[in-house]
């Protein structure tokens, strides 16, 4: 692993940088964060295009499912932007959103299993994200771990 050298590199840059904040800004979307940015980007596009299409074309069929898809798209989009933007404020905001996302997946996942009749159509978070290889469950957990690790100070 490159953990030590990366830490040293950051320290060196911070020492020669009058604005330590600007080094912190680049950290969230690098290293393992790069992979997270990609996955969150994919899920933003997937959830957003799905909900836009469904809200326009077939809103009456399953309004609850489609609105939840739209909400999840917004959460994914916000986390993606936060990861790219970096900085302590963005890190905190992304942390809250990842927790929200995890809560959403667990709630909607349980809800779809407990009361399938409320969901005539699928959402990204239905059955804990089974239709998406369960990535919707793993993603917020990984995100929270990464955001915790990249905390500064």
């Amino acid at each position: 692993m490159t953990g030590d050298s990366a830490g040293g590199e950051t320290a060196k840059r911070a020492a020669g940088n009058p604005h330590p904040e600007s080094t912190a800004r680049t950290g969230l979307g690098q290293g393992p964060g790069r992979l997270l940015v990609m996955l969150y980007g994919v899920f933003t596009v997937a959830a957003a295009s799905r909900s836009v299409y469904q809200l326009i074309a077939q809103y009456q069929e399953a309004p609850l499912a489609y609105i939840l898809s739209a909400v999840s798209a917004a959460v994914y989009a916000f986390i993606t932007v936060s990861l790219v933007r970096g900085g302590e404020g963005a890190r905190k905001a992304a942390f809250v959103c990842c927790a929200l996302e995890l809560l959403g997946v667990l709630t909607v996942g349980t809800w779809t299993l407990a009361d399938p009749s409320a969901f005539p159509d699928q959402t990204v978070w239905s059955d804990y994200g089974m239709g998406y290889l369960f990535i919707p469950v793993f993603l917020p957990v990984t995100g929270l771990m990464w955001l915790r690790r990249s905390r500064r100070g």
């Binding site: 490159t2 690098q30 290293g31 393992p32 964060g33 790069r34 992979l35 990609m38 996955l39 994919v42």
Partner: peptide, 11 residues
């Protein structure tokens, strides 16, 4: 880094 490779792999 290796994470660039992992990103392409995931995509």
């Amino acid at each position: 880094t290796r994470w660039g490779s992992a990103t392409v792999s995931a995509a």
